[in-house]
Amino acid sequence: MARVKVKSFSVIRDVLGSEVVEIEVNEPQTVRRLFDELVRRYGQAFKDKIWDPNTGQMAPFLIKLNESMISSTLDIDHQINNGDEIAIIFPIGGG
């Protein structure tokens, strides 16, 4: 099991209730499993913020994993480890 910190902003932070939350991820310890756990814990309100009902897929966005960048679409099965810090770089765009 991996214990990770998840950082989020604006509407996602509003749903998670805090800028940083700690989440435990069971095997397989992947990005996909982490988001499944977030949905289980925070329910439909969280899912609405990242799952696109029109495509049935998770929205495309970048994820900061420690000091590197990965993608919700290209790296969904990326391994995560105990102590990792993850930031959801979403939603952004416009301006």
């Binding site: 604006s10 509407v11 939603p91 765009g93």
Partner: peptide, 17 residues
């Protein structure tokens, strides 16, 4: 999802992320 946050925070939703 990518449209959300504009109503609440406007385009400054971008800044922190």
């Amino acid at each position: 999802p990518a449209v959300q946050g504009l109503s609440g925070y406007g385009t400054p939703r971008n800044v922190a992320a």
